[in-house]
């Protein structure tokens, strides 16, 4: 039974693409057949984050418009052979996506994979609505700050009204992934508290990803953190989130503030 999963947020820059890549890699490492589809037509990034930018020949638009076969456009990851990428086009825009074409591609992908992960563009326009259109489940990526939370709330409303499942009167599973969580700033009260975010959005928590420069460094190297640094705290959080997606019940751990001895000795002075 294939699950079509959309990774969405409304707001840009919260970590959708990074999370889509890291979670897909984590799911694939557990033996699942995973394809991750870049819906950000015109501003494609997923190929870079996955380290596949030099292997893109055909893309989603070519397949949607019937100019290429799906098998020609899919790029298999060199490190994990159960992980594939369907890249977006950089030269076109979202108007090139047709609703029928997207539906056909998703149906074809359902036959080949266990997980179809759709990396949504920011915003609530055509690209984002088409990315969520055929989803069975959604991951709402949110940073612990007010604008991100309100945009996520808006997206949850759209997930409950504009998706194919919602229109049939069915529900779509929604999971909250809290990213860029900074334990130091949380302790200082500079970020929204996890329980406040959960209270506002009232959807189940899939995981809390700590802010880490490793995530950015991995993205820049074209290697999702779950491949490049699998033992780092953010990678462990993504692996746990992937296990929860597969139905395991795990307690969500809130990243704690860990300071080195030097940090404890001089942290205060540096702030003052």
């Amino acid at each position: 039974m294939t699950t079509v999963l959309v990774v969405t947020s409304g707001k840009g820059g919260v970590g959708k693409t990074t999370s889509a890549a890291a979670l897909s890699a984590a799911l694939a490492q557990s033996g699942q057949n995973v394809v991750v589809v870049d819906f950000d037509v015109g501003l494609r990034n997923l190929d870079l984050v996955m380290g596949a930018q030099r292997r893109v020949v055909f893309d989603l638009i070519n397949v949607v418009q019937g100019d290429a076969k799906l098998a020609q456009a899919l790029i298999r990851d060199k490190r994990i052979d159960t992980l594939s990428l369907l890249p977006a086009s950089q030269t076109r825009d979202k108007d090139a996506l047709s609703a029928e074409g997207v539906e056909r591609v998703i149906d074809q992908l359902r036959e080949k994979f266990d997980w179809v992960v759709c990396d949504s563009p920011a915003g609530i326009e055509r690209g984002a609505t088409l990315a969520m259109r055929h989803a069975d489940a959604a991951i709402v990526v949110t940073n612990p700050e007010v604008s991100s939370v309100r945009d996520s709330d808006r997206i949850i409303g759209l997930l409950d009204s504009k998706t194919a499942r919602a229109e049939k009167g069915e529900r779509i599973d929604k999971h909250l992934l809290l990213t860029r969580y900074d334990p130091v700033r949380a302790a200082r009260g500079e970020m929204l508290k996890t329980e406040d975010v959960l209270e506002i959005l009232s959807i189940p928590l899939l995981g809390i990803i700590p802010e880490s420069e490793l995530v950015l460094r991995s993205s820049n190297l074209g290697s999702p953190v779950t491949i490049g640094n699998p033992n780092s705290p953010p990678a462990r959080a993504y692996f746990e989130a992937a296990r929860r997606l597969r139905g395991e019940t795990l307690v969500v751990s809130v990243p704690a503030q860990r300071r080195s001895l030097v940090g404890r000795l001089f942290g205060r002075r540096a702030v003052a």
């Binding site: 945009d151 709330d153 808006r154 409303g157 759209l158 009232s202």
Partner: peptide
């Protein structure tokens, strides 16, 4: 019996 979401 559902929350009213932003934008609704």
């Amino acid at each position: 019996d559902q929350p009213v979401r932003s934008g609704q």
